[in-house]
């Protein structure tokens, strides 16, 4: 899925988005300075900023929707589409770049067959670059689902992805076995 493409919501998703957003809005005031903390919380809960949520926030703070959109499209943190189940963030800080961060990024792009900033069609993985996670001495660094992987080589890239594949297969197997028992 590419960054700009609009996304169809599944049945029930809209209601969930609205309920979560309303709950978050209740805990905040209605001043403009609440905007960023509010949308940060929405993203933390929902994984991204759905359009209906942004509209709801705009109404609550009494500002034009486009002002919410300006903020959401300005900062690196905000995502307008749902991320993959596993988020891979490749550090592109100075030290990581010099120690081969771009080669690691290339490897992920090649293995996952997506470009940075994209999500795999099965929504399993999304690939992002981060400016610096502050572990320069352990370069090149990749953050996989909040876990920092140090001194990553292209071979390690295969290893990381393989771990997830095995995990997924085991889960499927468990589910099948679980289903058979019933």
């Amino acid at each position: 899925m590419k960054g700009g493409e609009a996304l169809e919501l599944l049945a029930g998703e809209l209601e969930q988005i609205q309920a979560e957003t309303a709950e978050i809005l209740q805990q905040h005031g209605t001043g403009r300075q609440e905007l960023i903390p509010i949308i940060q919380e929405i993203q933390e809960r929902l994984g991204y900023l759905p359009k209906p949520a942004m509209e709801q926030v705009a109404r609550a703070l009494d500002i034009p929707e486009v002002d919410v959109y300006s903020v959401a499209t300005f900062y690196n943190q905000f995502r307008l589409n749902p991320p993959g189940k596993h988020q891979i963030k490749v550090c592109m800080g100075t030290a990581c770049h010099m120690m081969g961060g771009h080669i690691v990024m290339d490897s992920f792009e090649r293995r996952l067959e997506i470009k940075e900033g994209e999500t795999t069609p099965d929504r399993e993985f999304s690939l992002e670059r981060v400016a610096c996670v502050g572990c320069c001495a352990l370069a090149p660094v990749v953050v996989v689902d909040e876990k920092v992987e140090a001194k990553v080589s292209p071979i390690r890239v295969d290893g990381i992805l393989l771990t997830f594949e095995i995990e997924k297969k085991e889960q499927e197997k468990e589910q099948q076995e679980g289903g058979a028992e019933e």
């Binding site: 403009r32 300075q33 609440e34 960023i36 300005f74 900062y75 690196n76 400016a131």
Partner: peptide, 24 residues
């Protein structure tokens, strides 16, 4: 206040805009 990832917010006036809920 958690900054949302914009290097330019190291610039004082941009940082202030960000706290005020605007693009930095």
């Amino acid at each position: 206040f958690q900054g949302s990832g914009a290097f330019v917010c190291g610039e004082e006036t941009a940082l202030i805009k960000s706290i005020e809920g605007k693009p930095g």
